[in-house]
Design a protein around this nucleic acid. Sequence first.
DNA 1: CTGTTAGCGCTTTCAT
DNA 2: ATGAAAGCGCTAACAG
Lengths: 340, 340
Amino acid sequence: MPAPHDSRTGQPPTLRDVAERAEVSAMTASRVLRDDPRVLPATRDRVRAAAAALGYRPNEVARSLRLGRGTGLVGLVVTNLANPFYSRLALGVDSVVAADGLKTVIGNTGQDPDVERDLVADLVARRVDGIIAVPAGSGQSHLAAAAAEGVPVVLASRPPEGFAADCVLVDDFGGARAATALLLARGHHRVGFLGSPPAVYTGTERLRGYHAAHAAAGLTADPRLVRQGQTEPAEAERAAAGLLALAEPPTALFCSNNRNTIGAFRAVRATGTDTALAGFDDFELADALGLPLTLVTYDSDELGRTAGRLLVERVRERRGGDVGGHRRVVMPTGLVEYGS
Amino acid sequence: MPAPHDSRTGQPPTLRDVAERAEVSAMTASRVLRDDPRVLPATRDRVRAAAAALGYRPNEVARSLRLGRGTGLVGLVVTNLANPFYSRLALGVDSVVAADGLKTVIGNTGQDPDVERDLVADLVARRVDGIIAVPAGSGQSHLAAAAAEGVPVVLASRPPEGFAADCVLVDDFGGARAATALLLARGHHRVGFLGSPPAVYTGTERLRGYHAAHAAAGLTADPRLVRQGQTEPAEAERAAAGLLALAEPPTALFCSNNRNTIGAFRAVRATGTDTALAGFDDFELADALGLPLTLVTYDSDELGRTAGRLLVERVRERRGGDVGGHRRVVMPTGLVEYGS
DNA sequence: CTGTTAGCGCTTTCAT
DNA sequence: ATGAAAGCGCTAACAG
């Protein structure tokens, strides 16, 4: 364990300090520390020894300024990291970009569009190498602006609106349609819908799927059974309880994300009805709830990894490659049945 | 929506570009953009207009290099962001530091000590303003080195070893002892223990609590009922199944974290025994499992926020304040009973 | 193989 | 009220 730095000053050692100690120029020290081969082995050793003795670490801030190449950071903009969907996404992204030496900066917006705007602007000012975002839904002009400044942008689970960017989507429409169709095929003719606020892309796509399944079965969904706007389980539970308390309650519920599914589950259990339950997104312990539960599943880790991969390719591109036009990856969904 | 930058070049506009367009020196432009009052209102307006027209954003990399003040980033080092414990911590930390204009960089180690070392070194090289870490357990010399270089370090849920740093802890010992005591008081004399690898601080503290409860009741825990080393629910399930298959199986299990509790729950349900279950950490849907479950709880969001607060105070201190000696905050625990 | 010069974008210091 | 010079730590580009 070398002394971290010269104790005369509280400042970390600089390249100059290393160079002086090794009695070479800063340039030679720089070469050695970047493994440039054109240095005499003896000099190399002296420099290495000096660096080790001082506990020298190159200042990455200075390097990125000099190299003009960005900071080796990627911004990840999400609404709520405590939601397991987003934390898995974050992990998937980080695992991929870390392999390229990039670090992930998190930006949690808490659903606030103003926070989201500021966050993106700040990430751009910080010269991140790219941004992966799951925009909350009320406009993407801030992302468009970032893209226009040359910062690669990748959207996860929502498509770009009004500008071009890579994105990874889930087959929201198809998955929701399949799950709803299953409920209808089992004889449920009154199927309720619980979903996120209408401005959220995935929510409206999944609602479209719900309606499409009805249409395919020659049915029309009762609009009174559609409740949008719930973001947290507690809200979803109230909304579900409201549906179950109707004079003609639904005999089944389709929930457009895991927050709504969990809320609906609580409402059904509390009410004691045998309402059938289906939802989008798998979640931990879904199999252990003691109620039959049909879920639309997809590989959520792969979603994050794919987003990371798309971004990394763009970052490499800026350093010389060429990926070509913007890509749109759609992840397939499956159906899983839990409970007895 | 202003044009993001001059389209002649793909480069974002610099202060010079703004200055030229406003026909002032870079210095004056800089003053205006930092709201330095000593500028003629007319000039100010010209500069503001130029900046807006170009879509100028100050280069934060250059600023931090010049100001020598760090980057406005804090590093968060955890083992597994997909674990809800860590994602809540991350959110708590971020919510506090964001209020001070700081961003959180995530470093996910995946339990690998080498990755952890590299990560910390890299964060230091990137000149983060501070580091919040939940070290995996095999040595903290890398954190000590960071602290020695003057980077504020705050540890969450583990105390510093071999160096001084602020930390936030949970009352691991007391919580585990209370939960175990409850099981013993209910007549369980064979209580199993499921926990993380022995190198993990929280695991061993909680094991200590488990033993202390036995001692206080005049009992000695059967060492064959102690299983350490499970990190994921699947491993924990196997370990629990092993205990339940013993000739003299435990009649109750105490699990030292949520991963182990979930695994134990699965094993108990699969076996169909009426083994009593207790564990450390609350988790979503713990109340919905249909089995009685006693959990040691604490405010995990507050844990993250406290860590963030301790760090922010140190960061401010480096800019002139004085917080004094290193602090150790211990969060109290409670006991919750779920299930019928 | 090694060193000198110059400058990334910004701001502090010292003029004017 | 404004500007010129210098430099944060580092590294391309060019000497020698």
